[in-house]
Structures are given as structure tokens and as C-alpha cells.
């Protein structure tokens, strides 16, 4: 009987060990889940104005909009004409806005704070644009690309994440203004649908 138990235990152990080698699709990136609390809200980041900010400081009575953005991604360039109108809409609805630059690996190649200052000035950003040093916030959020949107409610719970809308190439061609709809629904206390969307974008250039 003992031999049987031993054999069973051995087979079970081998099974468990082999399970780890089973070929399977890699798990999805650990993106912040809908309903999750905003992480690192007291972590200080330097804005292009020179001011030190935290997510908590930027948030307003109805919530916070975080946009992981950068200077060198063509997708950002295409969507950028919607940055200020969306920031304005968010502010009107009592939602604070901040863009964060997580591209640590290419700070010397167009993504420095100086480059960010130039970009904010050139594009007349009407919202803070801060350096995510060491991509720490992007890591905590599970962000993967630029632009990548995260919208939080007044309790700093994630209510929407993903794309700005369904047409990077043309603001006029947008059929689904996901983020605008989410902002309006959040402020009105309505259900946000969809809560999560995907779009093509540039990978975040993580620290090497």
C-alpha cells in the first residue's frame, strides 16, 4: 500500500513539474484591472514646468486621467490633435489630467525632459506632462504602449483603460470616441461601456 502511495506521489510530482514546461501562450501583460486602485499616487514626478507633481495632487473631485505618452511615437503624433480637447473635456467634468513619459531607455534619443518641454510648448499642451523616471509608474500600471490611457473615478478606482478612440489617423473619422464617452459617463455617474479597449501603439522603452 505504501508503495502505491509513493508511486502516486511520484507521478503527481512529475506531473506538476512537467506542467511548468507545457507550451502555452504567454499570459497577458499585468495591466491594472478595472476597479483597481491607482498605484503610487504619492510618487513624485517632474513636470515640464519644473513643478513636482503626484497623481493625487493632479486628481480632481471626479477623478483622474493618466495618459502614457511620449515624443517619438507616430501614433502619439496622430492622436495628439485630440489631447487638448480631451483634457478640456475632462477638466470641465472635474477630472484632472496628466501625461507621463515612460520611455526611459531612449532619454538621450528624443525623450529627455528638455525634449518633453519642447514638445509641450510646440503642441501647446494644456495639461501637465511629466517624466516617469525609471518607467516606475508605467510598470505599476502595467502600461505597454504609447499612447495608453487610464481613467480613474473620484475614489481613484480604474474605470476605463486603453485607447483614446478608434481612429488614430483621423479625428474626423472617429466612430467610437471611447475616452470622451467614458469621461462623460463617469461625470454623469453612468456605466462606462466599453471599460477596456485596445489599439496599436509604440512599445514603452523600458529601462535596460
Amino acid at each position: 500500500m505504501k508503495k502505491q502511495y509513493a508511486a502516486f506521489a511520484f507521478i503527481a510530482m512529475v506531473g506538476v513539474a512537467l506542467y511548468g514546461f507545457l507550451p502555452s501562450e504567454n499570459t497577458a501583460m499585468d495591466e491594472l484591472a478595472i476597479g483597481a486602485q491607482a498605484p503610487m499616487v504619492d510618487h513624485e514626478v517632474e513636470d515640464v514646468s519644473g513643478e513636482m507633481l503626484t497623481l493625487q495632487k493632479v486628481a480632481k473631485e471626479n477623478g483622474l486621467l493618466v495618459n502614457f505618452s511620449c515624443n517619438t511615437c507616430p501614433w502619439v503624433s496622430r492622436w495628439e490633435d485630440r489631447y487638448n480637447p480631451i483634457a478640456e473635456l475632462a477638466e470641465e467634468h472635474g477630472i484632472g489630467v496628466i501625461a507621463l513619459n515612460p520611455n526611459t531607455a531612449i532619454r538621450d534619443d528624443g525623450e529627455s525632459l528638455e525634449d518633453m518641454k519642447a514638445r509641450a510648448e510646440k503642441s501647446n499642451y494644456q495639461f501637465p506632462y511629466a517624466l516617469d523616471e525609471g518607467s516606475k509608474l508605467a510598470t505599476a500600471f502595467g502600461a505597454t504602449r504609447t499612447p495608453h490611457i487610464y481613467l480613474f473615478n473620484k475614489d481613484m478606482e480604474l474605470v476605463y483603460r486603453g485607447a483614446i478612440d478608434d481612429n488614430a489617423a483621423s479625428a474626423e473619422g472617429v466612430e467610437q470616441p471611447y475616452l470622451k464617452n467614458a469621461i462623460k459617463a463617469l461625470a454623469a455617474g453612468n456605466e462606462i461601456n466599453p471599460q477596456s479597449t485596445k489599439s496599436l501603439g509604440c512599445t514603452i522603452k523600458w529601462p535596460e
Binding site: T144, H148, T203
Partner: peptide, 9 residues
């Protein structure tokens, strides 16, 4: 892929 967030490559 359902596991792809959209970042390239």
C-alpha cells in the same frame, strides 16, 4: 491574440 495589448512589435 487576446494576450496582445496592441504594442509593436
Amino acid at each position: 491574440s487576446p494576450n496582445w495589448t496592441g504594442a509593436l512589435p
